[in-house]
Nucleic acid binder design. Structure first.
Lengths: 337, 337
DNA sequence: TGTTTTTGCTAAAACGTTTTATTAATATTG
DNA sequence: CAATATTAATAAAACGTTTTAGCAAAAACA
């Protein structure tokens, strides 16, 4: 086993000082007036022995880790997995690595995660925030760590945001159903106070109100399957006049589709369906399901770009940015008369 | 801004030595014979000021980072996303964090990733290895870093493995089709030399040979959509006698389903379908698709357990372990006559 | 009592960098 | 020619830990 190679072993081998080696390695040769000859000597040697600086030592000294913390609700949801992929890819190309975690919308777990991330001296954060984490996020900001929030809004938090036009998207989706002639349009959503859910609900309510229709709102909790399906099923049975549904998320819609199938209802003849958040399944399903598609690529790109630019200039002075991206409405068979 | 709090500031505040504080903090008070009184004093103070050790400094000194590197093919594939979630969860509960990356089966990128991970002093690795990375993986092992390989096998590599019974699963799937009376059974796979793909192919070939049938093997490359579909489509058109297909992966099957639909063929009347790797879509599709389900939870759990146990005892002496988990065969409508 | 053991604690080195302050040598100026 | 400015390089401190080796006092022993 060869002796551990370090900046000081290089200095010794070359008969020069550690400082000089460090300057050369950090591209400060010009600024610090190291002679070209010496620069070349160092570079050649470093090349030859394939020296790689120890990033831990560097981080300890500089306080920068070149790590970005990514905190999403659940990395196994297609939406977040897709975003994670894009973010990782771009971060990697900029010399950053990603540490990720899933919050499962649990505030306690999220707080612990933030502790651990801080401890690892993460340089910046991309967070899909659960409710109740406002203080901690503000603390990060106060600590000079850039934060970009994703997917949802947090009141009274000084951070950059990337969201989509939730209200308007659902408004338009409901309008589409109205135009197609549906009269009793239901909205099935999570029992959650998260901003994106509230906004989607508002969009529905606005469209229904404008059209002078009766709102049918059902809030369910998502448990990954059976119970959610049951709740939707009994809701539909108790309100047989419902002729169409807007689902607030794609997994709720999947549960809904199962419920509808079990009830023996046909889409769209008996009941029309529109879902927020597109999903491969919706394209393939028979009938195919109309949906509101979020631009995952653009969301991820915006988020990582905003974070990287903050990291570059440590420009916490710049005013906070809100970016609202546009969804696209994909009309398929499930909503046409 | 309060002065940065460290082990030495604590020592100073308490009028004792750094060493003592460190010993107490690391639970070595007993061993090092620090008096109970002093231990309590330190602990109380640490509690009061909510001191958290700087993990960078600790890592620099100890060479341990408490970070696990997770390298998968593509974090946005449901299979890998599901595994990532489980691994992250368990690692987190054991005080480890996960850094992840996607290789996209690119050897060059993977090598770079391993460089970066080494640089970050990652303690252990869970890798879904692309072909051609054998040397680098062996180097990790030689370096004393535990490695667990996932999903596929690498010849001549000293590492723990977690895989599934690929050969046998496909053998049984083909047998199932044979028993259902299908005669011209095709196998559509990736043009890849990866072990899991080769094993799946072998299983198909064995079943076909045993039954004295003609093999129909089509290797395609996966491009995420259109071209793959076209290739499958033209393959089916050129071989109209084919009455059933086994797909080697779920995304190939999705492309296949699109091709089949476009050709106007009905499942299973005109053509039966079985896919490797279950997918939510298969359960919901009309007709529902028979599939070979991988136990993602068990795979992830095995992998992280094996890695954690190696990390605990740094027991590189222990012989390498191969764990082969069993898939389950889910018969649905697409393969029944 | 004098010697050895045990107890309780600590000094200082090491991990591998970055960066500030400084020095010595050379070049430029008045 | 002496004084000043520039060039080229370096010593040493700092980042915050862990850990080896050792020391002084108290206790146990002969």
């Amino acid at each position: 086993m060869s002796k551990r190679i370090s900046i000081s072993s290089i200095a010794k081998d070359l008969g020069i000082s550690i400082t000089t080696v460090s300057f050369v390695l950090n591209g400060k040769a010009q600024e610090k007036r190291i002679s070209d000859k010496l620069v070349k000597k160092v570079m050649d040697y470093v090349e030859k022995i394939d020296y790689k600086p120890n990033s831990l030592a560097r981080s300890l000294r500089t306080g920068k880790s070149n790590i970005i913390g990514l905190i999403v609700e659940d990395i196994s949801y297609p939406f977040f997995a897709a975003i994670a992929k894009e973010i990782e890819d771009k971060a990697y190309r900029n010399g950053y690595k990603i540490i990720y975690s899933s919050t499962e919308n649990n505030v306690g777990k999220t707080k612990e995660l933030l502790e651990m991330y801080k401890d690892k001296h993460v340089d910046g954060y991309i967070i899909v925030p659960p409710e109740g984490i406002e203080q901690e996020v503000n603390a990060l900001y106060a600590d000079g760590k850039p934060v970009v929030l994703l997917d949802r809004y947090l009141d009274g938090v000084e951070a950059d945001y990337v969201t989509v036009n939730n209200e308007d998207s659902v408004y338009k989706a409901a309008q589409h159903l109205i135009q197609e002639g549906f009269k009793n349009i239901a909205f099935i959503t999570l029992n959650s106070l998260q901003s994106q859910m509230q906004d989607r609900l508002s969009g529905y309510e606005r469209a229904i109100k404008e059209a002078g229709l009766i709102p049918y709102i059902k809030e369910v909790s998502y448990d990954g399957g059976e119970r959610t399906k049951k709740h939707i099923s009994s809701f539909l049975q108790r309100n047989r006049e419902i002729d169409s549904i807007v689902f607030a998320t794609n997994y709720l819609c999947v549960s809904g589709l199962k419920a509808i199938k079990e009830l023996g209802l046909r889409i769209p003849e008996h009941i029309a369906v529109v879902s927020f958040d597109d999903y491969e399944l919706f394209e393939m399903y028979a009938p195919s399901i109309t949906s509101i598609a979020q631009p995952t690529g653009a969301i991820a790109e915006q988020a990582i770009n905003m974070l990287l630019s903050r990291l570059k200039k440590s420009s916490l002075d710049k005013k906070k940015q809100d970016v609202v991206l546009q969804t696209s409405f994909i009309v398929r068979e499930s909503s046409k008369t």
